[in-house]
Design a binder for these strands. Structure first.
Lengths: 197, 197
DNA sequence: ACGGCAGGTTAGCAGGCGTTCACATAGCGC
DNA sequence: GCGCTATGTGAACGCCTGCTAACCTGCCGT
């Protein structure tokens, strides 16, 4: 009874974390099964005691991150009093997530193409739903934006926030503050759909 | 004398373009030499008449894009009358570039790690200089931003603009307008460095 | 007319990769 | 104590991939 629940996440989670780091740095195909093993102190084929295949690791990792992102985002929006604060906490949620786990965010951005077909379908569905949460929230705060514009703006903001890993120049709090402010400011400019700049 | 210069860019450029498209979609390691050949109508090893290796293709492609980005950006800044219009045309330059060649931008964002060591050094140097152009321009327009903040903001804006390939919901002009406005708006929020949001 | 070269072809090799196999061993319920 | 299960190991296998080799061919300058 000393540690019935805290001790469980050991190996599997450990492997996933290490693999995420490696995938983020070298790309899925740039990382060997032996590299992942070495990163957690075991060697090579031992990983197959925990995962069915290398693809399964990526699949599980991307599925879980997409689910967490969607659930957390939805929860923040549901809990918000008004549209403006919904958008605010949605931004804050994504920023915190990206700063908390830069490797995972990077993998999700870059390695969708390396998923197995069924895995890719599942992840894309989750991502689409997450985007939908954003689109709705954006349109509630910036009513003059039509739907395609809001969608494009959402993707652009994801790009802005997810660019985190490439610049560690600031400490976490400053970075979070900067990214949040930039994201929100950029979204307020997402109105006036047509007309050249 | 009929076509001494316009006819040359044929094969080499053609291959590079096709390879960029494939690398962007499947990742460097996810694309075979045969795939690239097939994409330009020749088959497999014929590519070695034009490039020394697969790495050399990526190297040349990333070096050239980094040079074009830097030169174009520098030129826009030099030609600008004041700081504000310098930033404006810098944004416009990058946006146009990203919309013109989404595949190249994607490859540059994602496949730095797959470069050969010497190639990576050269590309990183070029990228650093490009970032420097942005940092200086940002600091001239937003004087209250310190240098690390300006640098982080520049990276964030790159992320915002380069997210283009993932969303083709809008036509080119609308997309260019939207991204430009979002980028500029986000940069105006890059002041007030510290203090939590 | 012709020799050479730019550019293409197919066959084959060597290395690396994901995966499996046969085997070891440590903890643990009976 | 004993066997079962969970976990790890090193060797081996088969495939796939980048690259080279040997050979072909049409164009272009002289």
């Amino acid at each position: 009874m000393s540690s019935t629940e805290t001790a469980k996440p050991s190996r599997r989670e450990q492997i996933l974390t290490a693999a995420a780091e490696l995938f983020a740095r070298h790309g899925f195909h740039g990382v060997g099964i032996d590299d992942i093993g070495a990163a957690v102190g075991i060697s090579g084929p031992a990983l197959y005691r925990h995962f069915r295949s290398k693809d399964a690791m990526l699949g599980e990792m991307l599925t879980s991150i997409s689910e967490r992102l969607l659930d957390g985002g939805q929860a923040r929006v549901d809990a918000a009093a008004d549209a403006a604060s919904a958008l605010h906490s949605l931004v804050r949620w994504h920023v915190d997530f990206a700063l908390e786990d830069p490797a995972l965010i990077t993998v999700q951005m870059r390695n969708l193409a390396n998923l197995t077909d069924p895995d890719r379908r599942r992840v894309r569905t989750l991502q689409r739903r997450y985007v939908e949460v954003w689109v709705e929230t954006i349109r509630r705060t910036v009513p003059s934006a039509d739907e395609p514009t809001a969608r494009a703006a959402a993707h652009a903001v994801f790009g802005l926030i997810n660019s985190t890993p490439h610049s560690a120049h600031l400490d976490r709090d400053q970075m979070a503050s900067l990214l949040s402010r930039m994201a929100l400011a950029s979204l307020t400019a997402a109105d006036l759909a047509p007309l050249t700049a």
